[in-house]
């Protein structure tokens, strides 16, 4: 068999293997991928932010607001050595905020910072409104204090648990 024939034969076999894996795993089986990112345009999205709210008025802590009117001071993920996409996905994809998941998030961000600071975990929702504007709103969901974690009293328990 010539080199070219052998090469294309191996390529086609690998393509079959590749196709089977991505077809059965929603388009992703690293490093095999159909690159589906950004394939669904116009959908609402959810990301996440952290703010230091140690000095924020307790009456304003749980307000849903916009990016321009957030309480507290920003906490840069870069400065604490956390990948911001990881953090966002952890927060936005968690459906069940049980003790294990909360501890995992506190561990990811770094318990040492929480000894002296109160950190608010915000979900950030973006969506199209009408034909010509994008609205971004921020919802405080968890308050990390040194000795405890508080849920937003304005949100129902279904928000934190599907059970």
């Amino acid at each position: 068999m010539s080199v070219q024939k052998k090469s294309i034969k191996i390529t086609l076999i690998s393509l079959l293997f590749y196709s089977l894996l991505v077809a059965t795993h929603e388009g992703e089986y690293w490093p095999f991928s159909i690159y589906p990112m950004f394939s669904k345009a116009g959908n609402p999205w959810t990301r996440a932010l952290v703010r230091d709210v140690s000095n924020t008025n307790p009456d304003e802590l749980w307000e849903t607001t916009t990016l321009d009117n957030l309480n507290g001071n920003p906490v840069s993920m870069k400065s604490i050595g956390v990948d911001q996409i990881d953090y966002s996905n952890f927060v936005s994809k968690t459906k069940e905020w049980d003790e294990k998941r909360i501890l995992a998030l506190r561990n990811m961000l770094g318990e040492r910072y929480l000894i002296t600071q109160d950190w608010m975990i915000f979900k950030v929702h973006g969506k199209m409104i009408g034909n010509d504007s994008v609205v971004v709103e921020t919802v405080p969901i968890l308050l990390f204090k040194s000795d405890t974690t508080l849920f937003n009293p304005n949100l129902s328990s279904n928000y934190y648990s599907s059970e």
Partner: peptide, 24 residues
């Protein structure tokens, strides 16, 4: 319809939020 420019607005807002989260 994927090429509708308003879809890019939504992605710019999303990625801006990521940069805000990363850099402060």
């Amino acid at each position: 319809n994927w090429i509708d420019g308003r879809h890019l607005w939504l992605w710019i807002a999303e990625k801006s939020t990521d940069i805000l989260s990363r850099e402060g």
